[in-house]
């Protein structure tokens, strides 16, 4: 099963894509993907309900968050009301340790994203702030990466034995599905996605010529 685990809609301050248009794009361009996760910046979008779009387009559409910590940005999957009460999602200087611990405590999982990116990726901070305990999985393929940012992330994953995910980090419609995650198990909802990520049953893949290829 293939899901794009990192995308933004107009709910994010810099997102310009309507979710319905993501769905139309996937179908029109025949992107071989089973769904995507909306990881809105610094918030969890309680209000939006995408079930009718899921039915109309035959796609799985899940909701998560992208929060900001001293080690960079982190995707949080499995956001509950309890987790939203545990820390302020809108703050830009959260503690990564807190985000990791509280996510686990509340039944979710926190995944540092674009770790190779300057300032907002984990690699840039390990040298000065030290290694991070509690990370299981990182994003090693990000559709918005420049230069060797994805290679740095892959090196970190190899060194630490982390599981790997991929996501487009799309902010406009036509960028959805540039990168994604192959899940070894079929997932139908966020609980099953979190379980799959916790088991490490995932790999990062990128789309080339309408086919998913693993990281190089």
């Amino acid at each position: 099963m293939i899901l794009d685990l990192h995308s933004h809609s107009t709910v994010s301050d810099d997102g310009r894509a309507k979710v319905e248009n993501y769905c139309q794009w996937i179908k029109r361009k025949e992107i071989p993907i089973d769904g995507f996760v909306l990881t809105e910046h610094r918030l969890y979008d309680d209000a939006s309900d995408y079930r009718s779009l899921e039915d109309q387009f035959g796609l799985l559409i899940l909701k998560a968050s992208e929060v900001e910590t001293e080690y960079g940005h982190v995707l949080v999957f499995g956001v509950t009301q309890e987790l939203q009460a545990a820390f302020n999602f809108s703050q830009i200087n959260l503690s990564l340790a807190t985000v990791l611990e509280e996510s686990e405590r509340c039944g979710g999982i926190a995944v540092p994203c674009h770790p190779g990116r300057p300032r907002v990726g984990m690699c840039a901070h390990i040298g000065t702030r030290g290694e991070v305990e509690g990370v299981r999985t990182i994003e090693t393929l990000n559709g918005g990466s420049r230069g060797n940012e994805n290679e740095q992330a892959a090196s970190l994953a190899a060194r630490k034995g982390y599981a790997r995910i991929g996501g487009s980090d799309s902010h406009i419609v036509s960028h959805i599905g540039r990168c994604a995650t192959r899940l070894h198990a079929e997932v139908r909802d966020m609980n099953e996605l979190v379980a799959s990520l916790k088991e490490g049953g995932c790999e990062a893949v990128k789309l080339e010529d309408r086919a998913w290829i693993p990281e190089s």
């Binding site: 900001e68 200087n93 990116r117 300057p118 300032r119 907002v120």
Partner: peptide, 13 residues
Amino acid sequence: VYEKTGRSGGMVF
């Protein structure tokens, strides 16, 4: 007026 972090570090918009 809002703040976020990015490749340039902490930023106020």
